[in-house]
Simulated assay, not measured.
Amino acid sequence: MDDFGLWDFRSDEEKALCSRFMSDGYVIEKANQKHLDIVKKFIYDAANEFIFKKKIAVNSKQYHLEEFHTFMDGPESNDLRLSVINNISRNIKFNHHYYLAAQKIIYQLCGNELAMQKRIGLSINFPHNKNDVLPMHADTWNGVSPYELNIWTPLVNCTNSMCLYILKKDTYLKLREDKSLLKLNTDDMYEKVKDNLTWITIKYGDVLAFDQSIPHGFALNQENSSHWSLNCRFKGLHTPYWDKKLGEYFMPITLKTCTRVGIDYKHPAN
């Protein structure tokens, strides 16, 4: 269902963006910097709160997210991650700014009557910490609707092994036809396709939108900086839901007037 011909009223800009997304499985666009900076400050303040509560000694009052591994041990990265997630999940303003930071690309790829993931995900990958590796997977293999769009936002510059990797789409489509991927464990899967991965270099200030039905993951961070990134799923409010339901995992965020009227409608006969 690639094209409806004369009935496709999208702008040329939107068509071009969507064509790249359909071809590669992802696109990178500029974020709204004002809202992205607010998002990063939320994260930085929540991370500092964890440091204060744990009484972790820090050499300098001025430090960056990239430097957290210099005063924390690798096993603490998950405790830090969970603490920050719990902190930001208490404030819906965080979700609002996250949405506004990527609003343009969400509208072009997903629509403008939307549902948004309630709890935004956070990845922290310390250098050479095996516990932070995210094995190759596709979200739709575990009950996630293919109608969802993953908006992935780096909070630091990501290069080389700090990058999210995604299987090249043409390779994935070939493997999908013979169902060979699902017969492998995650390590064997990675070895089979590692030469056909795209390592997505991205800097702070950009957002990545990708098709989460394509296998992706994080390898071991072999750089000298800590990786920090956020991920959140958006979907058209009226598109099919699988295991992750509206009101439980998703919340409506841009409910339009006609939908509100329809929800409240009562037929005179009843």
Score class of each variant (00 low, 15 high):
R20H: 13
D79G: 04
D206C: 10
N91L: 08
T259M: 00
N87L: 02
K34N: 11
I85K: 13
V156S: 09
K30H: 05
I38Y: 07
L149Y: 01
L155P: 13
K266H: 05
D187F: 00
N224M: 05
N112E: 14
L100N: 15
G111F: 11
D3W: 02
D24A: 14
F9L: 13
C158Y: 00
C258S: 13
F71N: 06
V207S: 06
C110W: 01
H216M: 07
I56C: 02
T70I: 02
N231F: 12
T153F: 10
Y172A: 00
K174C: 09
I253F: 01
E223V: 03
V144Q: 03
N185K: 07
Q212W: 00
L230Q: 11
I43S: 10
E148V: 07
I120C: 12
M1S: 12
T159C: 01
K179N: 14
E248P: 01
F68A: 00
F210T: 03
L197P: 07
V39I: 14
L155Y: 10
D195L: 04
S19A: 14
C163Q: 11
I253T: 06
I120N: 07
V261Y: 12
T254F: 04
V27S: 06
S83N: 13
I202Q: 10
F68S: 01
L17G: 05
R119W: 07
K168Y: 02
K266V: 11
T254Q: 05
N91W: 07
F68C: 04
P252Q: 08
N221K: 06
T239K: 14
E67T: 13
G247Y: 08
G25M: 12
E13S: 15
Y165M: 07
L246I: 11
D187I: 09
K53E: 15
I85W: 02
D12K: 13
G121Q: 10
F42L: 02
T257F: 07
C163F: 06
D188G: 05
K118T: 10
W7I: 09
A57M: 00
L109K: 06
